[in-house]
Design a protein around this nucleic acid. Structure first.
Length: 383
DNA sequence: AACCCTTTGAAGGGG
DNA sequence: CCCCTTCAAAGGGTT
């Protein structure tokens, strides 16, 4: 795939918001908006249907997730249409832990509390200068549907963290290695500025934070013996721990050491997409406000909130993700997402195969949604 | 210990 | 080109 093209590819017209899929998401959102108004009358019935689906999922086994065929985009739209305070109650209707339920019972856990942080991120994004080609820097087009639930006048309360990073001369937090890095490795004002931003706006984004100070940007990641070599967060030893053993001093045969070397070869992680960045930023907030800990439930909430975001708000995360991909490509030119295939063994793979034969469901339900997604509309950033 | 769950998006491969 | 699969984060729960 033309990553550079889809990823923007620098200062040209290719510096768009991202892949068409992202735009599709916007379209999807718009559709949901339409559905919202359209379905308002049929809400209760659909609610019941969805509840049934959820219950069916539960009865179909522990593997039953949100991935009910036919409960794809429409279902998400319904969730929006039915009001997020109701939607929260449909999460895990049967098996919710009490703490989970308590959390979800709080209306704000499913409503627009995300807004302030999103706007914080937005403020920070705006705080930092755009790339050198500033004039051409694509600004997200205004959303076709301005979410009524997100009045533009709503002023976010910047958390101290955000204020800290927003300040012109942020004081390094104690123990913050990334802030202790002496100089910013990136030559391009684009990325350095961006990742400065990222480290600020995404205060909870260690991944991104250390990206921008990553020594690999100076000499290559994790170079053994390099004085400033700090492992890139995207580089994870197979053990999952940052315990790089650059040299094998043991008396092993070459073959053995070779095998071991392969085994210990650090894994370069995929760059985070827009939603992942959003989740990383918002997770702590949701946990705090909803007293939730289970990531599955949190992610469901975040998924709904993601869809409730305006285009502009989502565009910020698409932009961040695009920059992540750009930087990732710069750091690891030959890397392919395929490199990590098979590194996670998934039992669900077998389940999925079974479900295919049985015609039940997808492992996660993502694809039915995509399959049911409305036809893409004209890209809003390109053209 | 490893995987599951759950979300969306990106990417790659097969048909 | 479309569809499917896998992985990215996260952490409690499950095997």
């Amino acid at each position: 795939m033309p990553q550079l093209d889809s990823g923007g590819g620098g200062a040209g017209g290719g510096d768009d918001l991202g892949a068409p899929d992202e735009l599709l998401a916007f379209q999807d959102e718009g559709e949901e908006q339409d559905d919202k108004s359209r379905d308002s009358a049929a809400g209760p019935e659909r609610d019941l249907a969805e509840l049934k689906s959820s219950l069916v999922n539960e009865s179909e086994g522990a593997a039953g997730g949100a991935g009910v065929p036919g409960a794809g985009t429409g279902a998400r739209g319904e969730a929006e249409a039915l009001g997020r305070e109701h939607a929260s109650q449909r999460l895990f209707p049967d098996k919710l832990p009490e703490s989970l339920e308590d959390g979800l019972k709080a209306p704000e856990c499913a409503s627009g509390m995300y807004k302030d942080t999103v706007y914080s991120a937005f403020n920070l994004l705006m705080h930092y200068p755009p790339p050198s080609g500033a004039g051409q820097h694509p600004q997200p087009q205004p959303p076709l549907h301005n979410k009524a639930s997100q009045p533009a006048h709503s002023v976010p309360q910047l958390s101290p963290l955000y204020e800290h990073f927003s300040s012109p001369h942020p004081t390094p937090a104690p123990g913050d290695i990334s802030q202790k890095q002496v100089h910013r490795p990136l030559q391009t004002s684009d990325l350095s500025g961006f990742y400065s931003l990222t480290s600020g706006s995404m205060g909870q984004l260690p991944h991104t934070v250390s990206w921008f100070t990553h020594p690999s940007l100076m000499l290559g990641s994790g170079v053994p013996g390099h004085p400033a070599a700090i492992p890139h967060p995207a580089i994870v030893p197979p053990s999952g721990k940052q315990e790089l053993q650059p040299y094998d001093r043991s008396l092993k045969t070459q073959a053995e050491s070779k095998v071991e070397k392969e085994a210990k070869k650090p894994t370069i992680k995929k760059p985070l997409n827009a939603f992942m960045l959003y989740m990383k930023e918002m997770r702590a907030k949701v946990i705090a406000e909803c007293t939730l800990k289970e990531s599955a439930a949190i992610n469901q909430i975040l998924g709904r909130r993601w869809h409730a975001l305006s285009r502009e708000e989502q565009a910020k995360y698409y932009e961040l993700a695009r920059k992540e991909r750009q930087l990732h490509m710069q750091l690891y030119p030959g890397w392919s997402a395929r490199d990590n295939y098979g590194k996670k063994k998934r039992r669900s793979r077998e389940k999925h195969q079974e479900s295919n034969t049985g015609g039940k469901r997808n492992a996660f339900g993502t694809y039915p949604e995509k399959a049911a997604a409305p036809a893409p509309f004209l890209p809003m950033t390109v053209l």
